[in-house]
Design a protein around this nucleic acid. Structure first.
Length: 647
RNA sequence: GGCCCCGUAGCUCAGCCUGGAUAGAGCACCGGCCUUCUAAGCCGGGGGUCGUGGGUUCAAAUCCCACCGGGGCCGCCA
């Protein structure tokens, strides 16, 4: 069974080169590095520079000698070989490749591209895990869309994947939101629940900040610290501005919250108390906190269902790590290692010592000269901290999987490293090695400082609304005849596709600069562009069926350079899946699918299928169109972008 | 101060890991193409000191060093 037609071609080229080198120079090459030549120079190239240096023969001479040798050898998927400068260029036998694709697709059918690994893993992908105190914003959207695409990409590589959402219900943020919620008398949400909680959280945070700054201001004035005083005044001004903006959003709620807040003598202490009681599983506090979190998560689910993202499991931090006693066990066991010390009344984990003792610097990618900072394991009041609980959570995850991928912002790099080092200290070296932090950079919105604490963010809900609104206008303009119902359905698909594509197309390590005009551009290099190509391919299939034309592969009929290029591109699809999956890089799919769509559009424009010159040619082209349709559909599917049949 | 990521066309991004053939797309701009499978399309055009300066190499956007600019981390936040 051939899942990956392109690799057949690659392997043959490798074999020929190896064989020829052996025969000509009596040299065993272990690894053959092949690359893609520029257009017009074949399909795979072997560079003869390094070999030439080893043999002390000019590379162009090596290339010619190899060509002469290979010319005499038997070839399957290779039409010819050319020596050009220091390169040996292999031209694929496109007809044979087409036949292999045909064979493969006749077996796997609509699943074409599925390319199972020889060592399938049991993987938990943890992603999104947004704090349940505000709506999902653009940064969270990148995480969700990336994690979701990644999960599917891994499944297409034959891995067993489960999607987990870690509910951080034990953090300070949640306690703040719960405190505010309580001050308001646990109101019924007056809007989408996560937006309501987001408002309460931001307002409460803001009031806390203002109170703190006022107190610090008084101290600074009393002790005549002029510089400090002025900087605090400035900071206070900013928060007062934040307060004003929040009040504009909902005067009634804002004022009510201020009133109750001002009656509290020591809000900070109360918040700490909430956290402590929750960790101790005090029933009243549990009810309060759960109520806040559930409201927020209900909002998340509503938003996520719009973009078809679902989780197999919502893992409550409190249950898994604290109430189960697992975190305490982790602390006890860490305490028994030589890597725990006490500093200012708290317990700390000496992460850097683990790096040194186990010589993990290189393995874990610790930069030279970088001291991994110690990790504080507990607060002085005995409550635990996030990363400490995350150690427990990770151990829990490994009870259900052998590989864990955490899709978490790059800013948590150090914490993720400390986590892995703690696992090593606990004797779980294997876990530490199979724990992958897929860090991604944040989404920048020009002219806006996003922050949940100040309530300043572009939410995924708004983003979707705007994109769909825009798509609706676009569909209206382009296909005026459509009934309302269908127009709306298409607008939804297009609007969502545009957003997902734009957030997926940038490699995770790069910050995305969010520009509305860019995201809502429905032309080339966009989700809708690819969706359009799919709709076109689909439409040709429908029209052909109506006219009784059936797809049939006649390899010799596909002679146009565009047809050949398309055959090579679809042959490569399973190989792209492999590469993107193993590198955890969905953006590679975006690039590929965009290229495929471009070439397909040129083909569409130039070469008629239904009205082809002959029946055979029509059947062959229809076969090609069908493969392209399957590839587009599957690639969009992995990316989580719906593939419309009409636009 | 230490460390990490990023810097490629006016704008948004590929390419860098694994050095080699004229540095690729898209947007915007200019000019063409709808009696023929949907023009969200196609064809053509202009536009680049690959942040700067060194180094390694026959060969550097790619590797090394320094510096500059943007972001991030170094917390009894998550």
């Amino acid at each position: 069974m051939i899942y990956d037609p392109y690799s057949v071609f690659e392997k043959e080229v490798e074999g020929l080169v190896k064989h020829a080198v052996k025969e000509l120079y009596d040299l065993e090459l272990l690894k053959i590095d092949l690359e893609e030549p520029p257009p017009g120079h074949g399909h795979l190239a072997f560079k003869c520079f390094e070999l030439g240096r080893r043999l002390e023969i000019r590379p162009d001479v090596v290339a010619r000698q190899l060509k002469d040798k290979i010319d005499k050898m038997k070839k399957e998927c290779i039409e010819r070989v050319e020596a050009e400068r220091g390169y040996l260029n292999f031209y694929a036998h496109v007809e044979r490749i087409a036949a292999i694709v045909g064979e493969s697709i006749s077996i796997v059918g609509e699943k074409y591209g599925f390319n199972p690994s020889l060592a399938p893993k049991n993987i938990i992908v943890e992603f999104l895990s947004a704090n349940p105190v505000h709506p999902i914003h653009i940064g969270g959207a990148r995480n969700a869309i990336l994690g979701d695409a990644l999960a599917r990409l891994l499944e297409w590589r034959g891995h067993k994947v489960r999607r987990h959402f870690y509910v951080n219900d034990m953090g300070r943020q949640v306690a703040i939101a719960a405190f505010g919620y309580e001050l308001l008398g646990r109101p019924k949400p007056w809007t989408k629940p996560d937006h309501a909680i987001g408002f309460i959280y931001a307002t409460t945070s803001c009031l806390l900040e203002i109170k703190r700054l006022k107190e610090e201001l008084n101290l600074a004035r009393r002790y005549g610290k002029d510089m400090e005083y002025r900087s605090k005044v400035k900071e206070l001004d900013e928060w007062v501005g934040v307060a004003a903006r929040l009040r504009e959003r909902n005067e009634e709620m804002f004022d009510r919250l201020v009133d109750s807040f001002n009656k509290e003598a020591e809000p900070e202490r109360k918040i700490s108390f909430i956290m402590k009681l929750y960790e101790e599983k005090d029933p009243d506090v549990v009810k309060l906190i759960r109520e806040v979190c559930e409201l927020c998560i209900d909002g998340f689910k509503e938003t996520l269902s719009r973009v078809s993202i679902y989780f197999d499991s919502f893992d409550w931090e409190s249950e898994i790590t604290a109430w189960s006693g697992l975190t305490q066990e982790v602390i006890r066991r860490l305490e028994a290692t030589p890597y725990v010390a006490y500093s200012k009344g708290t317990m700390i984990f000496l992460a850097n010592e683990v790096v040194k003792d186990y010589d993990l610097g290189e393995k874990f990618g610790v930069p030279k000269g970088f001291e991994v900072p110690p990790l504080t394991l507990m607060r002085s009041d005995g409550t635990t901290l996030y990363t400490t609980r995350d150690i427990a959570y990770t151990i829990w995850k490994f009870r259900h999987a052998n590989t864990v991928i955490n899709v978490i912002g790059a800013e948590q790099k150090v914490a993720q490293l400390q986590l892995r080092l703690a696992l090593v200290a606990l004797g779980y070296k294997q876990m530490a090695e199979n724990l992958i932090h897929l860090g991604y950079e944040l989404v920048k919105v020009p002219g806006m400082k996003m922050s949940g604490r100040t309530g300043q963010y572009v939410t995924l809900d708004e983003l979707l609304d705007e994109s769909i609104r825009r798509a609706n206008a676009e569909v209206q303009a382009r296909s005026p005849g459509l009934p309302d119902e269908e127009r709306k359905r298409i607008a939804e698909i297009v609007g969502i596709g545009a957003i997902k594509y734009s957030l997926l197309a940038v490699s995770p390590s790069k910050p995305v600069t969010f520009v509305w005009e860019q995201v809502l551009n429905f032309e080339r290099n966009s989700g809708p562009f690819v969706q359009y190509a799919h709709a076109r391919a689909h439409n040709i299939m429908v029209k052909a069926r109506e006219r009784g034309l059936k797809p049939h592969l006649h390899p010799e009929q596909l002679r146009d350079p565009l047809e050949k290029e398309l055959v090579m591109m679809v042959a490569k699809w399973p190989n792209i899946v492999k590469k993107a999956s193993d590198k955890l890089r969905p953006d590679i799919l975006c690039e590929y699918v965009n290229d495929l769509s471009m070439v397909f559009n040129s083909f569409y424009d130039k070469l008629p299928v239904i009205r082809a010159e002959s029946r055979e040619l029509g059947e062959a082209r229809l076969w090609l169109v069908n493969v392209i349709r399957v590839v587009l559909k599957n690639c969009l599917g992995i990316l989580g972008i719906p593939a419309p049949t009409r636009m």
